[in-house]
């Protein structure tokens, strides 16, 4: 007789009752903002993975995205601007049994915390970083961020941005992250699976979420309606595998159309020794 596998049925009601702080709801994010979705997907992944919330720590820096841990019924550290990964290094090294999840934004991670980010990736800490990329400094009033695409408008670039942007996922891959993925918020199941994979992965897992900012970014870039902005993200993104196929076998017109597109998907998987493992090995050697 085959034993039936016990299936963990996840539902929205279960997640809301188990993980969300009732007194903090409804949350502060703007109408049409994707940060609520990011929180939702992270909670789904955590529930499916069956993480013990007593052994999970959420960290964040400063910014819209960094308000996310405040809504979760678990221990959280709301740290200084850009230093979420520095604090995460301390937490993980002090107690390697903890699951450390970092919520960070594009300004927090790439702008102010750029150096912390590179070095946390280089060390290959066993943490999961969910970086929400909305192309702008949303909370401070819509200034140009290091990820704002060329030609896009912001408070500090009223004639269009002239600086070339950072590609967060490519940078994480180049610095040596062991799991790198990028997904937009309008696809629910792929990011949930990616966050699950990131939690299972023993090493630095980087999941970039493309999230629409309606108030600071959409308003200045001719997306006045929420539907327009979400549809724009849907048009502009393309699966990495499809992108490669079109580059190889597509016609000239198809290849020209690729120029403005953003690749999404899982970019990199690798197994490497993490910093805690190296540290434990060193301790045993010295005994």
């Amino acid at each position: 007789m085959k034993e039936k596998k016990s299936v963990n049925i996840v539902s929205g009601k279960k997640i809301q009752e188990k993980y969300l702080r009732d007194e903090m709801m409804p949350h502060i994010f703007c109408n049409g903002c994707g940060l609520g979705n990011v929180l939702d997907y992270a909670l789904w992944a955590i529930e499916k993975e069956g993480l013990d919330m007593d052994k999970t720590v959420f960290l964040s820096g400063i910014g819209c995205s960094s308000r996310i841990p405040g809504y979760i019924h678990a221990d959280a550290l709301h740290t200084t601007h850009g230093r979420a990964l520095a604090f995460a290094t301390g937490v993980k090294m002090a107690n390697p049994d903890l699951n450390v999840i970092v919520f960070t934004g594009d300004g927090d991670c790439m702008g102010i915390g750029g150096n912390h980010f590179i070095h946390a990736v280089r060390r290959n800490l066993d943490i999961t970083v969910i970086a929400v990329n909305n192309y702008i400094y949303g909370m401070t009033g819509g200034q140009v961020a290091p990820t704002t695409p060329e030609g896009h408008f912001a408070t500090t670039s009223p004639y269009g941005n002239i600086e070339p942007p950072f590609n967060m996922s490519d940078m994480a891959k180049a610095a040596g992250a062991t799991y790198v993925a990028r997904w937009p918020v309008f696809k629910p199941h792929q990011p949930i699976n990616s966050i699950r994979e990131g939690l299972q992965n023993k090493g630095f897992s980087f999941i970039e979420m493309l999230s629409p900012c309606t108030t600071a970014y959409g308003r200045r870039n001719k997306f006045r309606r929420i539907e327009d902005l979400w549809a724009h993200y849907e048009e502009k993104t393309i699966l990495a595998e499809d992108h490669d196929q079109i580059e190889k076998f597509g016609t000239q017109e198809e290849r020209k159309a690729l120029k403005d597109k953003i690749k999404i998907g899982v970019f990199h998987r690798e197994t490497k020794k993490s910093l805690e493992q190296r540290y434990q090995e060193l301790l045993e050697e010295l005994k």
């Binding site: 949350h27 049409g32 939702d40 997907y41």
Partner: peptide, 10 residues
């Protein structure tokens, strides 16, 4: 339920 950013739908 998944796409609602405000946790309003169950």
């Amino acid at each position: 339920e998944l796409i609602c950013p405000d946790f309003a739908i169950v």
